[in-house]
Amino acid sequence: MISAHNLTKRFGYQTAVDALSFVVPAGQIVGFLGPNGAGKSTTLKMLTGIVEPTDGTATICGFDLRRDTLEVKRHIGFVPESGAVFESLTGLEYLVMIAALYGIPEDAAVARIRQFIAFFDLSFETLTDKLLGAYSKGMKHKVVITAALLHNPPVVFFDEPLDGLDANAAVGFKALIQTLAREGKTIVYSSHILDVVERVCDRVIIIDKGRLLADGRPDELIAARNAGTLERLFTDLTGGAELERRAKDFAMTFRS
């Protein structure tokens, strides 16, 4: 469903993503992990057509990212980390506008939006009576998730999707993506909440400094490195173990 081959992005002299290659079949939930600045968001932005790769290729649902960019975009949904929305639109105006970009008529869009707001425990009045600028972070994020799934895409990219969601919404969301995967959708899930990734994802890809460090089933990777947990595996691979010692040293400075 997703195939990346030597995907590379350079910003000037800095290489953000370095020849990344992987294949994700349909119906799989892939956890895309890495420390800050590892190149996760840049990779997702390349795969969603927001940023052009410097080198390498990728295909999504059989469409070439460079050649058939519009077709790729029709087949994907994306929840960006920023959670950006047009704040001077109401939630409904925003979602209806997004639906229109996929050729969905307003009545069909509203029917679908009603399903989502029921799922997220939002009221329709909130969606019509308030500008998005007045929404809480969590509410805004629910609208962004709705906007990503409204057109029923076969491939969905989530960049920190739980950010701002309350505990109930987060539980519901995890159930949602598992249901979506069972329906055959491919999910790429980038997050720093490793225990959620461990529970939800069929497979994890760990990158650092733009390079692939590990790729496989979470339990297999953990067992192979005798890490015990995904968090331990992650810190071992990305040099996070050193951070614990540094944190202890740093905490000592507060004593003086």
């Binding site: 506008m97 229109a100 009545d107 069909a108 029921a118 057109h151 329906e183």
Partner: peptide
């Protein structure tokens, strides 16, 4: 919390053009 049915059909009956939607969006903004 029941998940929205992801496979329900969304066949456009009277689909607005993206250009029209964008025009309306940018005018509003």
């Amino acid at each position: 919390m029941s998940a929205p049915s992801p496979s329900s059909p969304l066949l456009p009956s009277r689909a607005p053009t993206p250009e029209r939607a964008l025009g309306k969006l940018f005018l509003t903004l």
